[in-house]
Amino acid sequence: MAGARVIPLHDPERDAARRSRHVEVVPEPAQQQSETPDWERRLADLLSFARRRIAGDYQIDEFGFDRDLTENVLMPPLKPLYEKWFRVETIGLSNIPTAGGALIVANHSGTLPLDALMTSYGIASEHPAQRHMRMLGADLVFRTPLLGALARKSGQTLACNPDAERLLSSGELVGVWPEGFKGIGKPFKDRYKLQRFGRGGFVSAALKTGVPIIPCSIVGAEEIYPMIGDIKALARLFGFPYFPVTPFFPLLGPLGAIPLPSKWYIEFGEPIRTDVFGENPADDPMLVFNLTDQIRETIQQTLYRLLTQRRNVFLG
């Protein structure tokens, strides 16, 4: 990091978008009065959604992504969590392209993958193109009944190179948490210390498809369930990668599953181009290692910077 980056308060692109949206809004009030009120339109939406679901009249893609269900059922409950509970602030959303493939690489933390949910909600609701981030998940997710089916419907797929490359080359926005269980299940004392970044499979997928890599640093997720212990025996019994002990779980039972209301910051860094390395760059292991390190270092430094700017865990 060569010093702090200047973040413009008024992004010209977004301002323009807002202004143009404003122009469109102008004729609407006149129309609205003569036509249906808001609650009625919402009822109509709800009914038509119910009809589509009963008749099976919707499209899913080859990965099992059900856009209709995601937008209408899975996303809305995240809104209060995102806006009221964690009061998430996104920085640098303009670094995510409005179209075309891109790979978002983020740090993982928080015992339960709420960071992934919040990041995808943030992009879907605040990015001008409202893109759906397609996440790459561990095979444990897809092996688990209910969860596996739900994960596929919400646009996730197995973290493997063929899937990542297929998504990226078809112009999707892909999210990956390369630390995996090592990151999400790390003890509280190791908070904001990035773990090993796997084998760099995500970098070779991006190199093969030539899409930019966007480092993403998430601050706040570490404090939602401070993991102070890990009951290995129970983890083995249930087949989990870890069995967390937090100050409130399992002590308070289900109440312990309420995350602490920390204040979150999600910063998307400058995209790293991967189409400038010549022929077959993915076959050069050194390049893959170096890029992996560079991305890991960028995220780590951004985390440190965001942490020094944060004065209070809960108030931000």
């Binding site: 990965f63 095979d139 092996r143 197995l158 063929p162 899937d163 297929r166």
Partner: peptide, 12 residues
């Protein structure tokens, strides 16, 4: 299986 890629090509 759950460990398979989402889409199979002929070489898999």
């Amino acid at each position: 299986s759950s460990r398979d890629p989402a889409v199979f090509t002929e070489d898999m």
